[in-house]
Structure formats: C-alpha cells, structure tokens
C-alpha cells in the first residue's frame, strides 16, 4: 500500500494549498481566508466556513453536498472560528484522481474518499496559516467480519488491491472513517455496514493507533519499522520541513 503523501503549497495564488494522496485518491485543496463574507452568511462572533468539494468528473451532486456538510461541521470545530469574527474561510477541494474501483453511482458509499478529503483539508488549513485548535488525522478502516472467522481489521485498505471488495465489505462487515484530534479523541466517526458495537470499538482502536500512535512508540522502533509510521508523526515531519524551508533566510542551518 502506498503511504499517504502530502505536499504543501503547490499553488501560488490562494492563501494556502496542499495536495494529498491516500487510499488511491489524490486531492488538491486551496483555502482563502479570512476574506469578506456575504451579508447573508455573516456570523457576528465567528467565521463562516464554506467548503466546496468538486468531483474528479462532472459537476457536484447531492453526494458532494453531503460530504461538504460533514466537512463543514468537522472544521468548524477545529478552526478557531472566534478568532475571525464576521469573515469567511473558503476551502475548495478538487478530487484529481480516483482509484479504478471508484464508483460514480449516486448510491455508492462516500466513505472511501472521506479520509483523503479530511487530511487534505487539514494540510490546506495548515498551509494557509489558519489558526486551529488541534491537529487532525483521518483514516479508513474496513472490518470484513463475515468473510471468515478471525479475519483482521484492515486499516487504510488499498482499493486497487481489493478490487471492488471495498463496497462488499461496507455492506457485509463494516466500513469506517475515523478522524482524531491531537488529544486522541475521535472527533468524527462515520460508519456503514452491518456490525455490532464490539466491531466498532475494535475499528476505533485500530484507527487510533494509526492516527496518533506518537506516544506509544519510541523513535528507535520507528526507524526500524520505517514504513509503518503514524499519521501525526508524518505530519510533524512535513511541517518541520516546511518551516525549515521558510526559515532558510535566517541562516540558522
């Protein structure tokens, strides 16, 4: 499985931008803000947040409206909106490429694309220097319960590998998306399928390990394992690199 990959500020014009690849999806995000808000959307004591999601092909459908609503609710909680009263923070996410198994049917699950969108949105906000209350990391988890006894939870399944099985997993077992904040609390959980509460908890624990496994593993272990690093750690390295790049003029080496 290719590890999630992020680039900060690939675009020059917007206040902040990022590209991110995860689960076979590549997404580019751009944020402008704080900018002037339409009178209709203005909130007296906090910033209005607008999220636009554009699909890889065609124009947006009710499916994109639903994803936008999920993201707006999530980000309103992460962005320190009270720091930007009577303004607008406008985030646009364009899906650049999808895995070959991606289904465009209206009834198809939107969960496989959601973690990539959340992580892109977060990286974009970071790049745009929007003040945030915490970090954010999202991951997709598949629990193929009924395929056979003792089958493990698959964190970050590769849609290209499993073929169209992801959809089947969603219906038989469970397909989950979890997003965790800096304190390791699940700020977003979207699940579908047919599962019990134990399955949900198992999936949640597995996702937490991947998203915020920073405290549990010592740096040495990370060096040895190499590929399996937590998302928070990956993010830290990314930001560190960006800060070093920005601070080159200081000559601090």
């Amino acid at each position: 499985m290719p590890a999630p990959k992020t680039t900060l500020n690939p675009l020059r014009r917007p206040d902040g931008s990022a590209t991110h690849s995860q689960n076979g999806y590549t997404i580019i995000g751009a944020v402008n803000g704080p900018i002037e808000v339409q009178r209709r959307d203005e909130i007296p004591d906090e910033a209005a947040i607008e999220v636009n999601v554009r699909p890889a092909t065609g124009v947006g459908s009710p499916k994109e409206r639903r994803i936008e609503q999920v993201l707006t609710t999530l980000l309103r909680n992460i962005i320190l909106t009270h720091d930007y009263p009577r303004t607008l923070i406008q985030l646009t996410l364009q899906i650049l490429s999808t895995p070959s198994t991606h289904s465009t049917l209206p009834s198809a699950s939107s969960l496989p694309v959601l973690p990539a969108l959340i992580n892109t949105a977060y990286a974009t906000l970071l790049a745009g220097s929007i003040r945030l209350s915490t970090t954010l990391a999202a991951v997709l988890v598949a629990v193929p319960k009924r395929f056979g006894k003792g089958e493990a939870v698959i964190v970050d399944p590769d849609p290209e590998e499993g073929g169209s099985e992801l959809e089947a997993v969603a219906r038989k077992g469970g397909l989950h998306v979890f997003a965790f904040d800096g304190r390791g609390e699940a700020v977003l959980a979207e699940s579908e399928g047919d599962f019990g509460i134990e399955d949900w908890e198992e999936a949640c624990e597995a996702a937490r390990g991947v998203c915020c496994g920073l405290q549990d593993e010592s740096p040495d272990v990370m060096e040895v394992e190499g590929a399996k690093r937590s998302m928070v750690r990956g993010l830290r390295e990314l930001v560190k690199g960006e800060v070093e790049k920005e601070g080159r003029w200081r000559g601090e080496g």
Binding site: A186, A189, D194
Partner: peptide
Amino acid sequence: GNGRIHRVEKNGGGAVGMGRMRHVV
C-alpha cells in the same frame, strides 16, 4: 438479541468516545 448497527454518523466534537458510544447504541 443485540442490535446490529447499520450506520454511525458522529461529528462535531470528541466527547463521545468508546464508553459513551455504547450508551448511544
């Protein structure tokens, strides 16, 4: 028996963790 969960949509905060999720179900 126990209910099967078909959908969970949780958003907006981190107050509902493992223990509280059981309560919700």
